[in-house]
């Protein structure tokens, strides 16, 4: 096994090669198996349809008046659920397949792979949620301020905190296995976080999604641009995102270490 393509022997792979490999794999799975993405779009729109038409029958004009906020909230919810379930389920699958064990003993370890996967999942979720948003706007006849840079930055920072929760859930799955269904229930809690009354109870801004949801509403409904937000608001958004992502990642790492001590890393 000594001769190689250019006769110079194997070249070492760095983080660039790792990023390319992980992202390319995610891309292949996305384009080669679109059924999951399409299914996600259809189910999300179905629930939104039930919410919108059912709500209009019950609440009439009251719902129509607040439809912009509902659309933005639902958009953020699909983003959050997509990122959370993608990362937590993905870690569970890696455990089940035995591929997590393989990554653990590589020179890179599983940590950077998981982070890169997380980034890929966020991009994928954005693509899916954009389709959902477009259909929701058509369905409801609503218009929103769609300043792409502002939306991408605010929404990305908002769901980073959820990504942290996904890592924590993945870590718990590594330890206790087969609890994915219970952890998936957490995504319904995102509704509460997205609609948290942060103006009345300011400390709620420290929870995942809550502060980001408020800023996204202002961006998409009121047309506030990224640079028009108070620096303190943006700083808090970044702090919450980094804090929960770091915390979730630490839980994942600690869970993996504990699983190694207990000898349950690869069991499923």
């Amino acid at each position: 096994m000594s001769t190689d393509a250019d006769g110079l022997g194997p070249r070492p792979a760095g983080y660039y090669h790792l990023a390319r490999a992980v992202l390319y794999r995610e891309f292949l799975l996305f384009v080669r198996y679109p059924a999951n993405a399409i299914g996600g779009v259809v189910i999300s729109l179905f629930f939104f349809g039930v919410l919108f038409y059912g709500g209009r029958m019950l609440a009439g004009q009251a719902l129509t008046d607040s439809i912009e906020g509902i659309v933005v909230g639902y958009f953020l919810w699909t983003l959050a659920v997509g990122a959370y379930s993608a990362i937590s389920n993905d870690i569970g699958s890696e455990v089940q397949w035995g591929t997590l064990e393989r990554h653990v003993m590589t020179p890179f370890g599983f940590a950077p792979v998981a982070l890169l996967k997380g980034a890929a999942k966020v991009v994928r979720t954005f693509l899916i949620s954009t389709v959902i948003l477009a259909v929701m706007l058509l369905l409801t006849g609503t218009t929103l301020q769609l300043h792409v840079l502002t939306i991408v930055v605010i929404a990305s920072l908002s769901i980073l905190s959820v990504l942290g929760l996904g890592f924590a859930a993945g870590g718990i799955t590594v330890l206790y296995k087969r609890i994915g269904n219970w952890l998936n229930l957490l995504q319904f809690g995102f509704v509460v976080l997205i609609s948290a009354p942060v103006l009345e109870i300011p400390w709620l801004k420290l929870l995942p999604l809550a502060h980001g949801s408020g800023l996204l509403q202002r961006a998409m409904v009121d047309g506030v641009r990224l640079w028009e937000f108070a620096p303190a608001d943006l700083a808090l958004l970044v702090a919450v995102a980094v804090g929960y992502l770091g915390l979730g990642y630490a839980v994942f790492q600690l869970s993996t270490q504990r699983a190694r001590r207990l000898g349950v890393l690869g069991d499923y």
């Binding site: 096994m1 001769t3 190689d4 393509a5 250019d6 110079l8 022997g9 194997p10 070249r11 070492p12 792979a13 090669h17 790792l18 390319r20 490999a21 393989r102 990554h103 590589t106 020179p107 890179f108 792979v113």
Partner: peptide
Amino acid sequence: FATVSGVDPDSVADR
């Protein structure tokens, strides 16, 4: 898996 084990896959295509 060549990549995650630390080898540029293009350099081991013959392998």
